[in-house]
């Protein structure tokens, strides 16, 4: 595991990380070469590349949380989101690009969880960068075969009476789980509600936080 090197601490007590002195890989070399050629040809500037990386890094689950909180608060919006996730979130001003969004709703009887067995498809525009575990072979292979056991390891114990629906993001769709609204939040503002919506609740490996 990456964090097992407890004996390799710097004098300041921080984990020691080796310098990246290894030779570039084939694809690293390719990326640099193409980027430099494109900049030389005036296709884009280095500043534009950096701005795009910063924009990608700036996306976070707070975007998705705003969508969920609005769906909890406005029945019309919830209906629109479940009918056409791409359109509903685009109208909220989220730049969803070429992505197509399907929102799936958790109810008292149904729990949804998202996985991409083939790679690591993830609704980055609404949730930011995926967590490392989402991309592991373990999560990808086990979630389609023993979702209840996987969820239990995340602390979500599904009752026998709940149907578990796994969604394998195999092609052009991206998925977001609309978690169940916690009880005791009647009359809350969308801003307050959004604070209860975690990243994992929108992947389905968690639930919305209880108020209090």
């Amino acid at each position: 595991m990456p964090h097992d090197h407890h004996d390799h601490l710097s004098p300041s007590g921080h984990p020691y990380r080796e310098d990246n002195d290894a030779p570039l890989s084939y694809w690293q070399t390719m990326e640099i070469a193409i980027r430099e050629i494109m900049i030389e040809k005036g296709e884009f500037t280095a500043a534009e590349v950096n701005a795009q990386i910063e924009a990608m890094d700036a996306r976070s689950p707070t975007n998705g949380a705003k969508v969920v909180a609005r769906a909890w608060d406005e029945p019309d919006f919830k209906a629109a989101l479940l009918a056409d996730g791409s359109k509903a979130t685009r109208e909220m001003g989220f730049d969803i690009g070429p992505m197509n969004l399907v929102a799936v709703e958790n109810t008292e009887d149904i729990h949804n969880v998202i996985v991409c067995t083939l790679c690591s498809c993830y609704p980055r525009n609404l949730l930011g960068l995926p967590p490392d575990w989402y991309k592991t072979r373990e999560y990808r292979s086990r979630t389609v075969r023993e979702p209840r056991k996987v969820l239990a390891e995340f602390g979500v114990e599904l009752p026998e009476t709940t149907t578990c629906r796994v969604h394998d993001s195999t092609a052009d769709m991206r998925y977001i789980v609309l978690p169940a609204r916690p009880k005791g939040t009647e009359g809350w503002s969308q801003q307050q509600l959004a604070e209860l919506v975690t990243r994992d609740a929108m992947i389905g490996t968690g639930l919305a936080k209880d108020p209090g």
Partner: peptide, 8 residues
């Protein structure tokens, strides 16, 4: 009875 949905 649990389900799996995929795009095909």
């Amino acid at each position: 009875e649990d389900t799996l949905d995929a795009e095909i």
